[in-house]
Design a protein around this nucleic acid. Structure first.
Lengths: 192, 192
DNA sequence: CAGTGTGGCATAACGCTGCTATACATTGCG
DNA sequence: CGCAATGTATAGCAGCGTTATGCCACACTG
């Protein structure tokens, strides 16, 4: 029942339908009370939906196999992240809805941890110098997040991703110590 | 009446009060119908509020005086942009609310134009090479936007701005052709 | 095996939301 | 002065999230 409600809510979210309590209960074939027994009302359900969104994101990032080029891996992780957000924009927006509580630290941290790990490998491989892997990951994440939200909102066209993400990643990774030319090639390879 | 409604809505937004039709009408001292005669319901009012938000942002950016160091100016514009967003986070979030229509192209374009102009001056001054000023401005905007939203949402602490914005701007401007050392100094001076 | 709780769902109602139809007032113009 | 028109007040509607209450079906227990 819990999972049915979460999945139905996520489905309505990706279908651009308004996720309302009554419509949700009707679609699942139960009554509105189910949301109150299994969650703490709609806010609790939204929290569960966002947690599910982060879990899906973490799974998707985990599917990106690590290669011997950690900078390429960072770009590939960015591509997987962007693809996930573009395919389910409403879910992505709900995951970062500022009106709600903080996203679940565990599931969100799992996704972020994959990025930090890749940055750490770049540091160990000598591609980065004198930087905190978490800082590099945060900068990549924030840049991509902002660009994605602007694209999802329709402020920027979708082509803006292909135009600006590789440029931003190359700038960030070069500033972290990677050789600019080699970095650009790795980013191109990873962004695909 | 129009302006009174817009300003009251903006005031309730910064006061973290829920902006509801009845509460808004009561505070302004009129009836709910006023919102329908002057705007097209609440959606129209939200559009006007966002337009007002972009107008305030454009005014604030225009107050940043241009110096003989265009890269410093870009960082100073970023600082003014960030300060405006941090001071009125609810209004900033409303400005980019993806559920609504696109922000008013005129007022939003005015704010963005200031950034593009500064990037153009950097190009003319020889600080940037072989780049589109609009592309540099877009990358700076998207990076700052993403970082600001993460801070406003509480995902990142406020100190993350001072830690990551100068690093990101230096990375972007260096990738645009500026000398890294000189760029870092200009960004530090502008970010203040 | 019958009795008894107990957890989970259906029903109905409450207060709130945005919105609209209608009646009234007030202003400007011929 | 009377008429037209614009903007506001009132009342009500459908929808929302939430909650109080009743029921039922399952599980544990003497």
């Amino acid at each position: 029942m819990r999972t049915a409600l979460i999945e139905q809510a996520a489905a309505m979210l990706v279908a651009r339908e308004p996720v309302t309590l009554r419509a949700l209960a009707t679609r699942v074939g139960t009554s509105t009370m189910a949301v109150y027994t299994h969650f703490d009302g709609m806010t609790g359900l939204w929290g569960a939906v966002r947690q599910e969104g982060f879990a899906r994101l973490a799974r998707r990032l985990a599917d990106v196999a690590a290669t011997d080029d950690p900078v390429r891996d960072l770009a590939a992780l960015g591509a997987a992240y962007a693809a996930n957000a573009i395919e389910h924009p409403a879910l992505y927006r709900a995951m970062f809805d500022a009106a709600a509580d903080l996203p679940d630290p565990e599931s969100a941290g799992a996704a972020f941890g994959v990025l930090v790990a890749a940055a750490g490998r770049a540091l160990e491989a000598g591609r980065f110098r004198d930087v905190d892997p978490a800082a590099v990951a945060t900068r990549q994440w924030a840049s991509g997040h902002g660009l994605l939200l602007l694209v999802i909102s329709g402020v920027l066209p979708r082509e803006a991703l292909d135009e600006h993400v590789p440029a931003l990643l190359t700038a960030i990774f070069s500033a972290a110590g990677d050789d600019p030319g080699r970095c650009a090639a790795s980013v191109r390879a990873g962004w695909g």
